[in-house]
Design a protein around this nucleic acid. Structure first.
Lengths: 160, 160
DNA sequence: CGATTGCGTTAGTGCCACCAACGATGTACG
DNA sequence: CGTACATCGTTGGTGGCACTAACGCAATCG
């Protein structure tokens, strides 16, 4: 194995991650998302929130009340996980859970005034955190990045 | 809640994910990465490989043999997880694990000819998979995307 | 009517990154 | 020299997350 290793050129073979890995979009995505997710989770945890709270509240705010199954589809949270999220939200009175008189299988979930207020808070926090995630990029680059991400995600979600 | 809902305009409140979520970089990253990771994992599994195999083999190929701790640092795989990966690689004779005579704590890991061959295969497979992930983007856009990802990751990795 | 589909809920699975601790070995320093 | 400390490979375990399986119940289709 021939490796240039002059005394004054530091050998970074122990630290530097291989070029192949630094070029693979899939790998870059994984690594970056791991870090981004950590930031978000920790940032929200500081106020006792979790990222699913935001997804559900945002869905309710933008599309109005809905059944749990609807919320699940809108937010991408699995139907069996939404239960717990709604328990937490209802416990904090950010959301109202009421049986649907027209279809007794369903619960109708409604966002409360307090929920709207909380959503605004989360929006602010997340603005800050997204800022942190995208820190090294200029505004134009951020827009482009988000645009590309959106197109990619749409493609893989089967959004017609 | 006022919602325009004419009879012939389909109400997509049940399907469409809220705009807020579609704009948050952190969220887009999470969602896209989840799908990308699935693609990669399944694609590699079809040949019995896992993504860590690639990371380790690539590191060995580009920087030469190294101890397990070095490999861990280069590949970002946790020190306690590398053990299993190397077991799998050694089992398939893609890698040689030998005690370091100069430092009896260390194992020196070397890639085998078969390992190099396998790495080339994985490279091909991953090329295809990355292609799938980035499918909707033009070549120029892909380059830009990867460039932005790289800058973001560098920033969050503390790469000097 | 029966069969099928959708709902909310519970328990559990598999994967993944990470932590804690260990015995063994090397290194630094009084 | 000896002792404290750091590093190595390894094991077992933890917590978070998306997801599955199955359930009892209600609505709907044919």
């Amino acid at each position: 194995m021939i490796r240039a290793e002059a005394a004054d050129i530091p050998d970074d073979s122990a630290l530097r991650t291989p070029d192949r890995l630094r070029r693979r979009a899939s790998r870059l995505l994984s690594q970056l998302t791991m870090r981004s997710d950590r930031l978000i989770t920790e940032g929200l945890a500081r106020t006792g929130a979790r990222k699913w709270h935001y997804a559900v509240l945002a869905s309710l705010q933008e599309y109005g009340p809905g059944s749990q199954a609807e919320l699940s589809r809108r937010s991408g949270i699995h139907r069996s996980d939404i239960v717990g999220v709604l328990n937490e939200l209802a416990e904090r009175h950010l959301v109202e859970r009421a049986p649907d008189p027209a279809d007794r299988r369903r619960n109708i979930i409604t966002i409360s005034p307090r929920g709207r207020r909380h959503l605004r808070l989360l929006d602010k926090i997340l603005d800050g955190l997204d800022d942190e995630v995208l820190a090294p990029l200029s505004q134009a680059e951020r827009d482009q990045f988000v645009r590309l991400l959106g197109r990619l995600l749409d493609h893989h979600t089967g959004t017609s």
